[in-house]
């Protein structure tokens, strides 16, 4: 790893000051992507600004309407949070299946969201649940936050501070992991909200997206068999050594059907 200056501010204001420098500054959250990238010299910043010293960025708050998660809250903490498990169990389950236990003990929701890896899990939850990303400057709806592969609406000097999720009526997340990397080859998050059914897909394309054709099919009739003969188009999907576009398109429908099946089963048992 190349040498760099290390800073660990204790307030958000001092983070903004550190990021205002014209040097190549990178923000460190859990480091589960950034540190391996720096070891491979894919990232060679002059300065690292570690957010680990700012207590207000950690924690979960919830009421009947909204679950808010601080940017530096680890996946393990979200997975184990009583509030998240009670309000949006699908979100706790998603967090508990990211990477492996050691990654979940360091990796954070803010880091994952800001990195916007095309195969990461959280973006699907944010988009399907119509979450809001709060930064040190503004609030951005998930629909306009994820703009492309590893790209977001964040400006230079802007950091994620918190993500707030409206509580859905019910939700489920299903993913098919790459046998080698364990990242989602495809992941589908289905949320039933008062405004309707929302379906978000990760892993399949360069950036997370909403499967609006599946949404409209499910709006007519909500059940796994509604997708029985559904064919998701392969156009625009990733086509690489991990899986071709046709395979990913097939997985989108299969996983959506599984997620819908789980929602139906859980509402029947209530």
């Amino acid at each position: 790893m190349r040498t760099f200056e290390y800073e660990r501010p204790s307030t958000l204001d001092s983070v903004s000051a550190a990021l205002a420098s014209d040097r190549d500054v990178r923000v460190l959250a859990g480091g589960m992507t950034l540190i391996p990238s720096m070891k491979m010299r894919l990232a060679t910043p002059d300065t690292i600004v570690d957010l680990g010293g700012i207590p207000e960025l950690v924690g979960v708050t919830a009421d009947d309407e909204v679950v808010a998660i601080g940017a530096m809250t680890t996946h393990a903490r979200v997975a184990g949070s009583e509030e998240v498990r009670r309000s949006i169990p699908a979100l706790a389950e998603l967090a508990g299946a990211i990477g492996d236990p050691q990654v979940r003990n360091r990796g954070t929701i803010g880091g994952s969201v800001a990195n916007n890896d095309p195969a990461s899990d959280y973006p699907a939850a944010l988009l399907a649940l119509n979450a809001t990303v709060h930064t040190n400057r503004r609030s951005v709806p998930a629909a306009s936050f994820f703009t492309g592969m590893f790209e977001t609406a964040l400006d230079v000097g802007e950091i994620v501070t918190r993500v707030s999720f409206p509580v859905p009526l019910s939700a489920a997340y299903e993913k098919f992991r790459s046998p080698a990397s364990r990242y989602a080859l495809v992941g589908v998050f289905v949320a039933v909200t008062r405004e309707g059914v929302r379906v978000a897909v990760t892993g399949a394309a360069p950036c997370v997206f909403r499967a609006t054709t599946i949404e409209s099919t499910l709006a007519e009739r909500f059940g796994p068999d509604a997708l029985e003969n559904f064919r998701f188009p392969r156009e625009g999907l990733n086509d690489d050594m991990h899986g071709d576009a046709a395979y990913r398109a097939h997985l989108v429908t299969v996983l959506a059907r599984k997620a819908v099946g789980r929602i139906v089963a859980s509402s029947g048992s209530r």
Binding site: Y6, R8, L28, G31, M32, I35, P36, I48, D50, G52, A76, P101, Q102, V103, N105, R106
Partner: peptide, 16 residues
Amino acid sequence: HVNGASVKSCATLACA
């Protein structure tokens, strides 16, 4: 273990 939780020491900065 860092503060009781298992982590990968090859992906953690000592400074942090």
